[in-house]
């Protein structure tokens, strides 16, 4: 039988307090995933059904957002040319932390049908950390929804740490990015 005697509660260390707060935060974060849709590829076509009455992603607390500052999840929907990669990285770096990335379709995994194109990158993971992939070419809407649920699970289990990896392995990512993009000579496309 447990003692009913009053015991002084053990003072939590700062780390523990932070952890508790983090867990609370994680609850909110996984129930309110605001997306930034980087719709350059064909997989973007799967998003409208996911959003509307058929699958209704709003019930997961997800919704589209206008700018990277406001968003939590970056959806990369399909193939990514080198030209857009620059912008993707720029956008990803503008998002406020914690931030997650979901890659759509085979293009973000291995290049998909564009795997041998000189203008397209093959593995998104080389350039920015991806937390969850939705495979398929193209993936059907259930798969997309499943991908989101996976992401929610990952956050719950504290495994969606891509954004932390981006900090810790920043040098590696940067190197890959620069290798892919080459030296950028243009300062500004329209107003040189």
């Amino acid at each position: 039988m447990e003692s009913t005697k009053y015991t002084q509660p053990v003072a939590l260390s700062k780390k523990q307090v932070d952890r508790k707060w983090w867990e609370i935060g994680d609850f909110f974060r996984r129930n309110s995933l605001w997306m930034l849709m980087y719709c350059t590829g064909c997989c973007a076509i799967e998003l409208p059904p996911a959003m509307t009455s058929a699958y209704d992603m709003e019930r997961l607390g997800m919704g589209p957002m206008a700018t990277p500052r406001q968003a939590d999840v970056l959806l990369v929907t399909g193939y990514l040319s080198l030209k857009t990669l620059r912008r993707l990285i720029y956008t990803y770096e503008q998002m406020s932390e914690p931030k997650y990335v979901v890659g759509f379709g085979s293009c973000t995994i291995n290049g998909g049908i564009y795997h041998d194109s000189h203008a397209v990158i093959n593995q998104l993971d080389q350039y920015i950390p991806v937390d969850s992939y939705v495979a398929g070419c193209m993936p059907n809407t259930e798969a997309v929804m499943n991908g989101f649920v996976d992401l929610i699970e990952l956050i719950k289990n504290k495994k969606a740490n891509g954004w932390k990896n981006y900090h810790t392995n920043n040098a590696w990512y940067k190197k890959n990015q620069i290798d892919a993009l080459g030296e950028v000579r243009i300062k500004d496309e329209f107003h040189q």
């Binding site: 707060w21 974060r29 019930r59």
Partner: peptide, 22 residues
Amino acid sequence: RRGPKWYQEFIDIFKLLSKRAT
């Protein structure tokens, strides 16, 4: 549609408060 939870807006706000802003 089913729609979000009735307390979804609270979640959204607290989530925003918990994030690291610029």
